[in-house]
Simulated scan of single mutants.
Amino acid sequence: MTASIAPFARTTPQPRAMLELIKPITWFPPIWAYLCGAVSAGVPLAGNWAIVVLGMVLAGPIVCGMSQAANDWCDRHVDAVNEPNRPIPSGRIPGRWGLYIALAMTVISLAIGALLGPLGFGATLVGVLAAWAYSAEPVRLKRSGWWGPGLVGLSYEGLPWFTGAAVLLSAAPRFEVVMIACLYALGAHGIMTLNDFKALEGDRQHGVRSLPVVLGPEVAARIACTTMGMAQAIVIALLLIWGAPWHGLAVALLLMAQIVAMRRLFRDPKKHAPWYNGTGVVFYVSGMMIAAFALRNLGVAG
């Protein structure tokens, strides 16, 4: 009996659990989006790698990591149902340490964001506020299957893209860059909806009205895929209008590959959602970089 309860009697966090808390696997989307923004800015990267790398670290390990810590703290009761082995419900991060880590990373995020100039700091502030608005009461936008994924899509794809371009330009990016960033952020709503499938049971028990809970897995999967597909279709159309047909064709081919993967997803959305997030999403984010190079080559960003 003593041996079985010992892991839950910690008074300080387990170091490995702290890394698990900030979920390195989730850092890729904002890092990639920030890099896409930097590419789309049209500014030479050779002399700006320090600020590019700093922004990528801020977007991924720091701000995204902070958002994961905040989410796990605010979701500790839900996770006790869905994933009891996660750091906080398992006791590997005991007491209020999860909250303290999230708050400390919030301060660090703002401090590093200030190094990126006024626009970089402003974008960091928006990202921090969005992270807490998503997870924390009384706002807790994650309770909504519409507002929650939309906010995460904006924070993971649109905001880092805007920031990457704005920091290198030292000015707000042009309309074309903002438009493409917003479209990929809109499409990411579908990615986040598919991500909600893994928490289906706990969300039902704790009143989180994700689309898989409210509409069922089949309908939610179709809405998610339609959202992703429509956003990319508009990107393709814009690239054609702006005189980048080869880039548009490349994005179109990637969209076709996603449609093939979606057919498998629809056979059993609950089972195949994790598989799609590991395959179809790769095609989605590849199209982001192609669109970024299209903007760069056209010179519409600078």
Rank of each mutant, 00 (worst) to 15 (best):
V219F: 03
L141M: 14
G47K: 08
P84R: 04
D203A: 11
M66S: 01
V52N: 10
L298E: 01
D196V: 06
V285L: 15
A38I: 03
A123F: 15
F162P: 01
M288T: 02
P30S: 07
E157S: 12
P24V: 08
A9C: 12
G65R: 10
A80D: 05
V126D: 01
S135V: 09
V177F: 08
G158L: 12
G98P: 11
R267C: 02
R174T: 14
I88F: 10
W242M: 13
A114G: 00
L103P: 01
R222H: 14
G120Q: 08
G65P: 03
A199R: 10
L35D: 02
P15N: 04
Q68V: 04
T12E: 13
L169F: 04
E201N: 12
D268F: 08
Q258I: 07
G216H: 11
W49E: 07
G55N: 05
L125Y: 00
T11Y: 09
N71Q: 11
D268I: 02
R143G: 02
I191R: 12
L116I: 09
L129W: 07
E137P: 05
L168N: 06
W161V: 07
V78D: 02
L194N: 09
E83V: 04
A41G: 05
S210A: 15
A41W: 04
H77V: 14
P212D: 01
G302R: 14
A233G: 13
A220K: 09
M230F: 15
T193W: 06
A70L: 13
A231N: 09
C225R: 10
K270M: 14
T279S: 12
M56C: 14
G299L: 07
N82H: 06
A9S: 13
V52R: 03
I112N: 02
M192F: 12
T124I: 11
S67F: 02
P30Q: 02
C182D: 00
V213Q: 11
V81E: 10
G37R: 07
Q232A: 09
Y276A: 09
I31P: 00
A261Q: 14
V63Q: 13
A70V: 15
Y156N: 10
W161F: 15
A114C: 03
A185Y: 06
A17Q: 04
P7M: 05
A80S: 13
W161E: 01
P94G: 11
L238I: 14
S109D: 02
P89F: 05
G55L: 06
G148Q: 10
M1W: 10
L115N: 07
R264P: 00
L295S: 01
A3E: 15
S144C: 12
A244T: 07
V107T: 10
G207I: 07
S4L: 13
Y184A: 02
A111F: 14
L265H: 12
Y134S: 08
I191G: 13
V235D: 03
L125P: 01
P160K: 00
G150V: 04
A221K: 06
V107M: 08
R16G: 15
W132K: 06
A292E: 05
A131Q: 03
W161Y: 14
M230A: 15
E137W: 11
F283I: 01
T124D: 03
L129Q: 00
N277K: 11
L183E: 11
Q14N: 15
G229L: 12
G243R: 08
P217D: 03
P173W: 04
P61V: 09
K198F: 03
L254M: 14
A221S: 15
K270S: 15
L200I: 12
R92P: 00
L255P: 02
G164H: 08
A104L: 13
